[in-house]
Design a protein around this nucleic acid. Sequence first.
DNA 1: TGTACATCAGTGAACGCGCGTTCACTGATGTAC
DNA 2: TGTACATCAGTGAACGCGCGTTCACTGATGTAC
Lengths: 172, 172
Amino acid sequence: MVAAASELLRAKGFDAVSVAEVANAVGLTHGGFYNHFASKDDLAAQALADAWASMSAHRSRAGKLPQLLAAYLSPKARDAPGKGCPAAALAGDVRRQPHPVRHAFATGLEEMINSLEGQLAGDPATRRTRAVALATRMIGALLLSRSVPDDEPLARELLSANLEMALSDMDA
Amino acid sequence: MVAAASELLRAKGFDAVSVAEVANAVGLTHGGFYNHFASKDDLAAQALADAWASMSAHRSRAGKLPQLLAAYLSPKARDAPGKGCPAAALAGDVRRQPHPVRHAFATGLEEMINSLEGQLAGDPATRRTRAVALATRMIGALLLSRSVPDDEPLARELLSANLEMALSDMDA
DNA sequence: TGTACATCAGTGAACGCGCGTTCACTGATGTAC
DNA sequence: TGTACATCAGTGAACGCGCGTTCACTGATGTAC
């Protein structure tokens, strides 16, 4: 149920997913929901943590940084928000969520930054700063690309321009 | 009314602002709303265009690029989403809005990129790419900083790390 | 100037709808003897 | 093994609520004569 919610929330956002919808997704009716979770917010916090966990697992399978960036900033990733990065899917919503949800978000984001930092070469003194900036670029590009209508060239350009810049930054 | 909606929408998001709230903000009741707009979505599209217009006016008053970046990526801007950049405030929501709203969003974003491109120095062949990447960095950083709880150091770091990287990119 | 009338922005009750949450009840499962 | 009972996840009707939208009505404004 947490896994189903995690995908639905990323695909549609917190408010657009109902308790009944999540329950139905695992073959239940809405009434039994409260045998498992204290509230919808409780589920949201758990689902967000779960999404970050599966994102982290995916990251360790993705190989080296250039391959990870190319996969992250791809049209395929753009078109599958439900299975993709929780930050790109929910960063805009999370500002209006209760504290446990925001905290789960921040924890996952911090882990993502740490993971990127570990894959960066170059001057160790600037690694953390570059990792924060790289995470921002990845998440921002995917999120903005999704916010623009699919048929506008800008949607592709946001991915390609940021991929190019991210790859060239990496060497510096 | 469009101006009031523009600020409310940026502060709270599309779904969290009701027609009654917008009407009350200008001293009316909700019933008269439909003498002015065809629907809530119609208002949202106009309000978004208005927000971009006031952002654009603000941009031309901001001086040179380093000053603009410092103001954009400041804690003050972070804490006033209602008066700030429509992209950082609404990029996450706009994906779920009807096409006119998405189109208004994309148009404003395109203008922002063009404006940044005009302020960039360096190799003209890469200017457009660098402008797209810079806009992504600005919007992504502000949006992520707002999504993290205020009391976490990461909220500040997202602004400062991206400001630092943006300023050093500018010279390259 | 005064009177009758048309216009139209604004009012507030009402509509249908979907939501999160509660609750009395069902029915399968497992334990006690 | 068979029977009685407790447990507890799951059901679906019901609750109160807020929403976008509609609509009959009000009342101020401006025009016609």
